[in-house]
Design a protein around this nucleic acid. Structure first.
Lengths: 365, 365
DNA sequence: CTGAAAGCGCTAACAA
DNA sequence: TTGTTAGCGCTTTCAG
């Protein structure tokens, strides 16, 4: 029973040749007799030889063909889709993914980044948790001359490529959609954490109010979490008010879904009593009882752009191009949750409930 | 501008000491004067030194503290949750994740596995695509003496640890739930691919029929895809029959969601006209208009068990314990889609629509 | 307390 | 066509 992994030397010994011959034979390079090559190939197969990429990299100072990806969580389909698309894109170029999930914890995030660098990744794609705390990690990366691309979120002052969603305009479009229908009392269910995305979307909300000449009221803005449960409690808070709002703009879709469930639960009708808008455009917002209008962000475009920016940097390590920022536009998916529908005549069948977009291809086991 | 990453030698040169002193100082070991240590630590900080774990591993034949995870897709929350839980569990033990997604492609899967082995992962957690095609990859892993744990699916004949869901009993429980209400015409929307899971669930469906003394009819079994769209077309096929079924048991939740949307779209009522059961118990099945009864599988338990099995193996590389199989039980979440409700009196408010489980903590950006 | 030598697996460069 | 040497970054000996 062998106890260590098969190495070139093992094969060399077994075949009674030098390691170099084995190396050459196995990599298909020239300079080996066909005879020897077949013998060695077969031997390698038998012994279950797998080349050690680590030592290769070490010796040749070549790339590890591994890139690090750091995301803050797996809470919805957003980062999941991104991860999938990154994996897919980079795979076609021979790269592998070292994954880290910061769980919105800046401490873990720093450890994650260090671990990636220790493992000599060729590049990093990173969606940082919050504004400030990531700076130390970012500077560490830059010091290594390790290509870095921010995705979805960025850390100001770090001069590197980034791909972001046009959160501000997305939010603004949603607001215009609401104010365009004459609504004026619009609440915002927003994120507690202070990130790039948070700020952008809130700023879009505020701009929407301003544009429509609506006074900004602090008590219309709720600092909630981002998940379904947060929707429940936010609605509870909202309902304590005597002054009901006409619409709620949610920071994201999971929050919007939770909000919808809770509203319906309380017998509040959507959109008749309150209109609802989410952000994300994932499948979640499309399958609920009252499909939710949502700002769609193209995760695939986002991920592909990030992967391609990174590839460019990795392929041109010396070239000192200025940092580029790619902004991926959003689009508003209008669904029932913001549609004025004609009053249903008694006895009339309620309107059908088609998903506004064709059902996605999401699979399961 | 430096062009290479800072190494121990760089620091040694800068400090005019030997590499060994630097090594000792940085790792906090004994045998360095406090004076020298602070000087070196500071220097390392300045130069942005990050130790090279690859060379460490190479020199010492130590662990890379990296494990490979291979999943077939990100289509729903199932593997996503698993991935998250694995990351979380292994992180606390200092391990990192090298991620590969086979996209249900056995060819890519083999490349993925090879890539992981080349990168000297300390272990692998793997949800293989299909029965047979993965065997070659599995044997390659075993040859390396690389600990392997199958998760959710397994390849028969490969003697290694595995953690699976009790798919068969889960499906059977769902069927009993239906037949217990006197239903006899129960369709199965099943997966096209022939995997471990596929077979187990179908076998549970068939067992359920048999138990209830119901004749198995081939035209009740639909070989569909696993995604929302598949639900649409499956319903279309189903509707061509003159002989309507009383219930549909779906291979998974996304399929069930697609099925529900299409049924409702066609004006078919759930559960009055057709009852519906899914499999997975993810949040997807709980947020739709008519919340769907679903067989819940505990992804966290699954992932944790897999991670722990792997940790045990990695910590005892020589110990030759027999392969263990852990079976994670399922539970049936009964929701509206299979509830006989009292006929709604005209004018009466329809029953509220509470999620059967508390809303999950799924977040968004 | 500090340093020099050897080696992990592999390959480029140079012999033979 | 084949083999030898040296070195990637680091650490474990063993000496000073």
């Amino acid at each position: 029973m062998k106890k260590h992994k098969t190495t070139l030397r093992d094969i060399a010994n077994a075949a009674n040749v030098s390691m170099m011959s084995v190396s050459r034979a196995l990599r298909g390079g020239a300079g080996v007799s066909g005879d020897l090559r077949t013998r060695i190939t077969q031997l390698a197969e038998e012994l279950g030889y797998v080349p050690n990429r680590l030592s290769y990299e070490l010796g040749q100072q070549k790339n590890t063909m591994t890139v690090g990806v750091v995301i803050p969580h797996f809470g919805n389909s957003f980062f999941t889709s991104i991860l999938q698309q990154i994996e897919s894109t980079l795979f076609t170029h021979g790269y592998r993914i070292l994954l880290a999930c910061s769980f919105n914890n800046p401490i873990k995030e720093f450890h994650d980044i260090s671990a990636l660098l220790e493992r000599q990744v060729d590049g990093i794609i990173w969606a940082p948790v919050v504004y400030d705390e990531g700076r130390r990690a970012a500077e560490l990366i830059m010091k290594q001359n390790c290509p870095l691309v921010f995705i979805d979120r960025k850390i100001p002052g770090i001069n590197t490529d980034s791909v972001v969603v046009d959160d501000r305009h997305g939010a603004l479009a949603a607001m215009r959609h609401l104010t365009g229908m004459g609504l004026r009392k619009i609440a915002y269910f927003g994120a507690r954490l202070d990130s790039y995305v948070t700020q952008e979307r809130r700023s879009g909300y505020l701009a929407g109010l301003r544009e429509a000449g609506i006074e900004v009221r602090g008590d219309w803005m709720f600092r909630t979490g981002n998940d379904m449960i947060a929707g429940q409690s936010a609605v509870a808070q909202l309902m304590e008010r005597k002054d009901p709002v006409e619409a709620i703009f949610c920071f994201n879709d999971m929050l919007a879904v939770g909000t919808e469930l809770e509203l319906l639960n309380r017998g509040i009708r959507i959109p008749e009593d309150i209109m609802l808008v989410g952000f994300g455009g994932g499948f979640e917002s499309g399958i609920v009882r009252v499909p939710i209008t949502s700002v769609h962000q193209d995760e695939n475009a986002l991920a592909t752009a990030a992967a391609e920016l990174l590839l460019t940097r990795m392929n041109n390590p010396t070239m000192k191009l200025p940092a580029v920022e790619r902004v991926i536009p959003t689009s508003l998916i209008v669904r029932e949750s913001t549609q004025r529908r004609p009053t249903v005549q008694s006895g009339e069948k309620p309107p059908a409930n088609p998903p506004a977009r064709p059902a996605s291809k999401r699979k399961s086991r």
